[in-house]
Simulated assay, not measured.
Amino acid sequence: MRDLMGLMGKAKEMQAKFAALQEEIAQLEATGQSGGGTVKVTMSGRFEMKSLEINPSLFKEEDVEILEDLILAAHNDAKQKVEQAMQQKTQELTAGMPLPPGLKLPF
């Protein structure tokens, strides 16, 4: 019975740590770029696009498709950086815990 109470206490402690981790990740921001920095996207830890910067040299009517591709590339770069930061923070929190492969925490 004592082991069960200890386990329940640890579960509540982990739950509180995961809640704190979720909040910390939500506050993360990552900036992705493409086209040598001519397009930049800043994204939150919740994968919300926070800002978009486009170098004015790209505003030519014949370059619209290139600009669209660069925006997508910058967005994907920012998303990848947020995912890497989330993975690192989750690994720090769960160090030593046996978790099933492929389990994504906290989201």
Rank of each mutant, 00 (worst) to 15 (best):
E61S: 15
A19P: 02
Q88L: 13
R2N: 10
Q27P: 04
A11E: 10
L52D: 04
K104V: 02
Q15F: 07
E68Q: 07
E62C: 08
A19K: 09
A30G: 12
K60G: 08
N76Q: 15
E68A: 05
E62S: 14
P98Q: 09
S57N: 13
I66G: 03
A19T: 11
E13N: 12
I54P: 08
M49E: 01
R46Q: 10
N76Y: 13
A11K: 14
T31Y: 11
T90Q: 09
D69N: 14
D63A: 07
L28Y: 05
A16W: 08
K60W: 10
Q27Y: 06
F107K: 06
E13D: 15
M97K: 01
E83K: 01
L103Q: 01
F18C: 02
A16Y: 09
E13R: 13
G32K: 09
A26R: 05
K40M: 05
Q84W: 04
E83V: 00
M86Q: 08
V82S: 09
S51E: 03
E65I: 07
R2I: 06
L70A: 05
G102W: 00
T94E: 03
N76R: 15
I25N: 01
A26Y: 03
Q15D: 04
G96T: 02
V64Q: 15
G9Q: 14
E23R: 09
A95Q: 06
L21E: 07
I54Y: 12
E83L: 03
Q33G: 15
Q80I: 06
P106L: 02
A73W: 13
Q87V: 11
F47I: 00
M5S: 05
K79E: 15
L70P: 02
Q84P: 00
M43V: 10
L93S: 03
L72T: 11
Q27C: 06
E24H: 14
N55C: 09
E68C: 01
R2E: 12
G6C: 05
K60I: 04
I71L: 14
K12D: 02
R46V: 02
S44D: 03
L93R: 00
A19Y: 03
E23M: 02
M97Q: 01
K104P: 00
M86C: 13
G102A: 00
L93H: 00
T42H: 04
D3W: 07
V64D: 10
L99E: 00
F59V: 09
L4A: 11
S34K: 10
Q87W: 06
K40P: 01
G102D: 00
G35E: 13
